[in-house]
């Protein structure tokens, strides 16, 4: 097992379960240079723009998600499909031309390993997505848009994440 899988190693080896353990989550920070608080403004700005797109394209709408799952509009399929195409082309360009980050580092990609969780967890998330009308991103944008009851959905999602962490070793993975 490589260092990249430290998240799994940590469970097997309690000695690694401290703050110093090498950690790779699913959306990891691969920057080697440490960043100051001011550097985080970059991510705040990208997040703001992303949130604006979410609202203006009505992706945060419970109704749009219903439309999608009822196959009554192309909108959401168009959004996700074109996002993937643009993402795919960008990633290929970064790889082909070995484009470096602003700090001059090589861009890191993480091959994902198949786990049963992607099926079980995926199905559970899908059920929740259709009922709440939101995946995690839109939850934040909905609250920002003034739908205060969604705070409960977000807190419950955090509780769900915590519960998964608690039972992780006892679930089929």
């Amino acid at each position: 097992m490589t260092m990249k899988n430290s998240q799994n190693t940590a469970v097997l080896d309690p000695a690694l379960a401290n703050d110093e353990q090498p950690f790779v989550c699913e959306a990891p920070n691969d920057m080697k240079k440490s960043e100051s608080w001011a550097d985080n403004i970059k991510y705040l700005i990208v997040g703001v723009l992303f949130g604006i797109v979410f609202v203006k394209a009505e992706i945060i709408s419970w109704f749009r998600i219903q439309e999608m799952f009822r196959l009554q509009s192309f909108h959401m399929y168009g959004v996700i499909g074109s996002a993937v195409v643009v993402g795919l082309i960008s990633v290929q360009l970064i790889k082909r031309f070995n484009i470096k980050t602003l700090a001059g580092e090589t861009v890191e990609f993480h091959p994902k390993k198949f786990q049963k969780g992607q099926v079980y967890g995926g199905l559970i998330f899908g059920l929740g997505w259709a009922i709440t009308g939101a995946c995690p991103g839109p939850l934040f944008a909905q609250i920002g848009s003034g739908y205060m009851v969604v705070i409960v959905t977000l807190l419950s999602a955090i509780a769900g994440t915590w519960t998964y962490g608690y039972f992780r070793d006892r679930l089929p993975n």
């Binding site: 699913e26 959306a27 996700i80 996002a83 993937v84 993402g87 795919l88 960008s90 990633v91 990609f109 994902k112 786990q115 969780g117 992607q118 079980y120 967890g121 995926g122 199905l123 559970i124 998330f125 899908g126 059920l127 929740g128 997505w129 009922i131 709440t132 939101a134 995946c135 995690p136 991103g137 939850l139 009851v149 969604v150 409960v152 959905t153 977000l154 807190l155 419950s156 999602a157 955090i158 509780a159 769900g160 994440t161 915590w162 519960t163 998964y164 962490g165 679930l171």
Partner: peptide, 30 residues
């Protein structure tokens, strides 16, 4: 709609190792 739905979103995404952004967009892009 809020408590159970939200719980499934949080539990399911973590169990699956990502949501629409991490899997559908970032994962498919790579």
């Amino acid at each position: 709609f809020f408590v159970l739905g939200g719980f499934m979103v949080g539990f399911g995404t973590r169990y699956a190792g990502g949501c629409t952004s991490g899997h559908a967009i970032m994962g498919l892009s790579t």
